[in-house]
């Protein structure tokens, strides 16, 4: 896996240079890529890791991994535009119409890279079908997220399976499919567990971090806030009133410490953390059971760190 990130980066840069031909589009597209490259390219590296772990040996996988990363980056940009947050990012500082155009270009480039990667046409076609199906599932999940009208944990779980968990599964399954010709269901299962745990971790963070986007202030229905709403006492009904917009932000913004205390005393944080860890341990157990050499399992487990 040495040099993996560099090779994925090369493919991403080459893709932009080939197809973002208007100079401004190329400049801003590269700037967005530079921002992305400050992270670890987790999704692309998962694609490469699963390809190698399941017997794949070719170099075409780096183009496929670049395709996965462009898919994720494009959806991240669109998500930020829809949520109107992360304004400190490169794309957050662009006009929304330009940022959207870049995202559309990257999503399309993702497809093109996957279809032109050095694999038998049948396999690259199957990988493209899988990625399209997961993107479409994620769009459905995103719709539920944007409507913010979920009322139960079951609805929340379905949303994150479609959205976050599905995209992580797509990254892993692309690798296994290109190596074996099959999207292995055991890989989907453990990848979804990891994706669920990661989303729950984000949701816990987003009720505790008051400085940036906060799911309590934004009345977002997530695992912690759903539990909180089901656990409050009669004296705490003002929280339900706030979520139902019978109270405004100005009515509650000075009650931050009280909200933290209620989240602690109701067991909101305990429950959410146990749920998150349960899915993470499910992931560990499932990876342990898969038929791979120990060194590959170690690397798959290490990706969750």
């Amino acid at each position: 896996m040495d040099g993996c990130t560099g090779k994925i980066e090369q493919e991403m840069r080459a893709g932009l240079r080939a197809f973002f031909t208007v100079p401004y589009l190329l400049d801003q597209g590269m700037a967005c890529l530079e921002e992305k490259l400050r992270e670890a390219l987790l999704f692309g590296r998962l694609t490469v890791l699963h390809y190698r772990a399941f017997g794949g040996t070719g170099a075409g996988i780096y183009r496929a991994a670049a395709a996965v990363e462009f898919m994720i980056l494009s959806l991240d940009i669109i998500d930020d535009l829809q949520d109107k947050d992360n304004q400190e990012t490169v794309w957050g500082r662009l006009s929304p119409d330009i940022a959207l155009n870049i995202a559309l270009g990257m999503l399309t480039l993702s497809q093109h890279l996957l279809l032109t990667a050095d694999f038998p046409h049948e396999r690259s076609g199957s990988a493209a079908r899988l990625m399209n199906e997961q993107v479409l599932a994620a769009i459905n999940g995103q719709t539920v997220d944007l409507l913010n009208n979920i009322e139960s944990e079951e609805e929340y779980m379905e949303m994150i399976r479609l959205k976050s968990a599905g995209l992580l599964a797509a990254a892993c399954l692309t690798g296994t499919l290109l190596a074996t010709g099959e999207p292995l269901s055991e890989v989907r299962t453990y990848a979804e567990e990891l994706g669920i745990a990661a989303q729950m971790k984000n949701d816990i963070r987003d009720v505790l971090n008051w400085d940036n986007k906060n799911d309590f202030w934004n009345r977002k229905k997530t695992l912690p806030t759903l539990y909180l709403l089901q656990s409050i006492s009669d004296e705490q009904r003002w929280i339900a009133d706030y979520f139902a917009e019978r109270l405004q932000l100005a009515d509650v913004v000075n009650r931050k410490e009280e909200i933290e205390r209620i989240m602690e005393e109701s067991g909101t944080l305990l429950y959410s953390s146990v749920r998150m860890r349960t899915h993470y341990y499910n992931y560990l157990d499932l990876v342990g059971k898969i038929s791979l050499a120990p060194e590959w399992k170690e690397q798959i487990l290490a990706m969750a760190d």
Binding site: K201, S273, M276
Partner: peptide, 14 residues
């Protein structure tokens, strides 16, 4: 949670 001065921070994964 045990021994943490800020229990809420102990809920993080790592």
């Amino acid at each position: 949670r045990a021994g943490k001065s800020e229990p809420r921070m102990a809920m993080y994964w790592t």
